[in-house]
Amino acid sequence: MYQPLDCFPKSWVFKRNDPKVEPADLQEIRLLSEGRAGQVWRDYISEEHTHPDHLTDKDWVKAVKAQVPSGKLQWEKVWDSEQLSLPDEFLSHFAAWGDDTTVFFCCHSDVVFEVKWGVFKRTWKAFLFLDNGPVLVGKKKKQAAQFHSNGWVNLLLRAS
């Protein structure tokens, strides 16, 4: 179900001093096995496409009905700043999530991380070194987000 984080070629993003991921949080960041990652990707992101670059408006992530009105936010300015927490507007979208909510940070069909929401909130800056379209979804939750390398994030709602 999981594989060692060191199997991920870019595991260095979680081992930097800036941003610092505390050892206890690092232990909670789980890289799914390729098989399990593929299943999560198919269940939560797309049955047809394996990478965010290939998603179309037939995939819920790109569908107009999934877009939250006024749900396009700038994340990069906060990421570059000394501020440790995610932007307030972003956190408001996920207000219904408890810190123990299981979330998936889906880079593509072979690379999916599983982590608790509380840990993601503390370590988000490390995750966003991987900013080429990943989708953040919560297990059994409708709120979601897709991060883009241009510094913007789209807040989304999954169909129930």
Score class of each variant (00 low, 15 high):
Thr123Ala: 09
Val153Glu: 12
Lys121Pro: 03
Val112Trp: 00
Asp100Ile: 10
Gly98Gln: 14
Leu156Gly: 15
Val137Ser: 12
Ala126Gln: 06
Cys106Gln: 07
Ser149Pro: 01
Val115Trp: 05
Thr102Ile: 10
Phe147Val: 02
Asn132Phe: 02
Pro134Leu: 04
Asp110Val: 02
Trp97Met: 07
Leu128Asn: 11
Gly133Glu: 06
Leu156Arg: 15
Phe127Cys: 02
Trp152Thr: 07
Ala144Asp: 08
Val112Ser: 01
Asn154Lys: 13
Phe113Met: 04
Leu130His: 00
Cys107Trp: 06
Cys107His: 12
Asn154Glu: 04
Val115Ala: 07
Leu157Cys: 15
Val119Met: 05
Phe104Met: 06
Asp99Ser: 08
Val137Lys: 09
Trp97Asp: 12
His148Ile: 00
Lys116Ala: 09
Leu156Met: 13
Asn132Glu: 13
His108Gln: 03
Phe127Ile: 04
Val112Arg: 00
Phe147Trp: 06
Trp124Glu: 01
Leu136Thr: 09
Lys139His: 15
Asn154Arg: 14
Ala126Thr: 04
Lys142Tyr: 14
Thr101Trp: 13
Thr102Lys: 15
Lys125Thr: 08
Lys139Ser: 14
Val112Met: 01
Ala126Lys: 14
Lys141Asp: 03
Val115Phe: 08
Asp99Gly: 11
Lys116Thr: 12
Asp131Glu: 08
Gly98Asn: 14
Leu155Arg: 15
Phe113Arg: 11
Phe104Asn: 05
Asp131Ile: 04
Trp152Ser: 14
Asp99Ile: 10
